[in-house]
Amino acid sequence: MDKILVTGALGQIGSELVMKLREVYGADHVVATDLRSSAHEITQSGPFELLDVTNAKAMFEIAKQYEVDTIIHLAALLSATAEEKPLLAWNLNMGGLMNALEVAREQGCQFFTPSSIGAFGPSTPKDNTPQDTIQRPNTMYGVNKVSGELLCDYYFHKYGLDTRGLRFPGLISYMTPPGGGTTDYAVEIYYAAVTAGRYTSYIARDTNMDMMYMPDALDAIITLMEADSSRLTHRNSFNVTAMSVDPEAIAAAIRAEIPGFVLDYDVDPKRQAIADSWPHSIDATAARTEWGFQPRYDLQAMTKDMLCKIGERQLLRKA
Rank of each mutant, 00 (worst) to 15 (best):
M140I: 15
V143N: 01
N144W: 05
V146Q: 03
G181Y: 05
D132L: 14
G179W: 00
R136M: 01
M175V: 13
R136L: 06
H157K: 15
S173W: 01
Y174G: 04
L161S: 09
Y154F: 13
K126R: 09
D153N: 15
K145L: 02
R164Y: 09
Y174K: 03
F156L: 14
T182D: 11
L151M: 15
D162P: 07
S173E: 07
L151Q: 13
Y174N: 08
L150P: 02
K126L: 11
N144G: 04
G160H: 13
S173Y: 03
L166F: 09
R164I: 04
D162L: 10
P177N: 07
G180I: 08
G181W: 05
T183Q: 09
T183G: 10
T133W: 01
D153G: 06
T133N: 00
L171Q: 14
G160S: 08
N128V: 03
M140L: 07
G160C: 04
S147Q: 04
M175A: 14
Y154M: 05
G160L: 00
F168S: 08
G180K: 07
P137D: 04
T176A: 10
T163N: 04
R167G: 08
N144V: 01
S173F: 08
D132H: 15
G160K: 07
L166S: 07
D184Y: 14
I172W: 03
F168W: 09
G179K: 07
G165S: 10
G165I: 03
P177R: 09
Y154V: 01
K158E: 15
V143Y: 05
P130C: 08
G160Y: 14
P130I: 11
R167F: 05
S173T: 15
F156D: 11
E149A: 04
P137T: 03
G160Q: 12
S147W: 08
Y174E: 15
P178W: 00
T129V: 09
D132S: 11
L150S: 12
N128I: 00
V146R: 05
S173I: 10
K145E: 02
F168Q: 12
D184I: 03
G181E: 14
M175C: 05
L150E: 14
V146G: 04
C152G: 00
G142M: 06
R167A: 06
N138Q: 14
T163E: 06
N128D: 12
L161D: 13
R136D: 13
D184C: 13
R167W: 04
P177A: 13
P178T: 08
L161M: 10
P169N: 07
M140E: 08
C152L: 04
G165Y: 09
F168A: 02
Y154P: 00
K126Q: 07
K126M: 12
H157M: 13
Y141A: 01
V143A: 09
T182P: 07
N128W: 11
P137Q: 01
Y141E: 00
T182Q: 14
K126I: 03
T129I: 07
N138Y: 06
T139P: 01
T139F: 06
T133G: 00
K145W: 00
T183S: 15
L151R: 11
F156M: 11
T176R: 15
G142N: 05
Y159N: 09
T183D: 10
T129D: 08
F168D: 10
Q135V: 02
Y141V: 01
H157A: 12
I172H: 05
P130G: 10
D127H: 13
V143W: 03
T139N: 09
